[in-house]
Computed example of a mutant assay.
Amino acid sequence: MVIRHFLYPILGFLLLNGSLALAEGNATYRLASGDVIRINVFGEQDLSIEEIRLTDAGSFSYPFIGEVQARGKTAAELEQLLTARLKGDYLIDPRVSVSVLKYREFYISGEVKLPGGYPYQPGLTLRRAIALSGGLTELASTGRITIIRDQDPSRTPEKASLDTPVHPGDSITIDQGFF
């Protein structure tokens, strides 16, 4: 009994800190084409959407509002935008929440067994991305890996290691090694 009372505050602390870390990661995530989101308007079933994929332009169609541009916005920014547009004409005090259900794919090519696009997973590293793509071929070089970040407008390849984080929309290239 004493042990249980001692552990509850510790477990609560760990759960809270884990939730905060997850929330911080989602707070900075910028939406783009291919992301799937959920929109919930509290008490308004007709305005809540369980699953909607952003178009190639990074937008979606929403009841009463029309086309909404989500590209480049965080979930919190999109919540504020929808709240502002619904307030007044449609609802008195809308409470909107937006969550990301599925992140856009990352792409891996070159010397991997199964090149292509794969679903992003939070916490993904290059090592795990290679595992998802079937592993390296015999000709692969772990010293010749580059990533083009989806959020980089210049599309400049950057050198990467096996522990480099992978983000949604990134393009990874693994070159051959020289003997």
Rank of each mutant, 00 (worst) to 15 (best):
V41L: 01
A76S: 12
G134I: 07
K73R: 14
N40E: 14
S154F: 11
I174Y: 00
A27P: 01
A76D: 06
P165Q: 10
A23D: 09
R127G: 02
I39W: 02
G143Q: 12
S171F: 13
Q151P: 03
N17E: 08
Q151N: 15
F42N: 04
G123S: 06
R155L: 13
I130C: 11
P115F: 05
L124N: 06
A70S: 02
S19Q: 10
G177S: 08
E105D: 14
E77A: 11
I39Y: 02
P157S: 03
I65H: 04
T173I: 09
G43P: 02
A129Q: 03
D89Q: 12
K102G: 02
F178W: 13
G110P: 01
V98Q: 04
R149L: 07
T74G: 05
R95C: 00
L16D: 04
Y8D: 11
T28E: 08
G116N: 02
F106V: 10
A129K: 08
A76P: 01
R53L: 08
D89E: 09
L14E: 04
P63V: 12
L114R: 15
R149M: 03
L114S: 15
E111A: 06
R71L: 09
I147G: 05
L14I: 11
A140P: 03
P115Y: 06
H167G: 10
F13S: 12
E77W: 06
D56R: 05
R53D: 07
F60K: 10
I37W: 02
T156S: 06
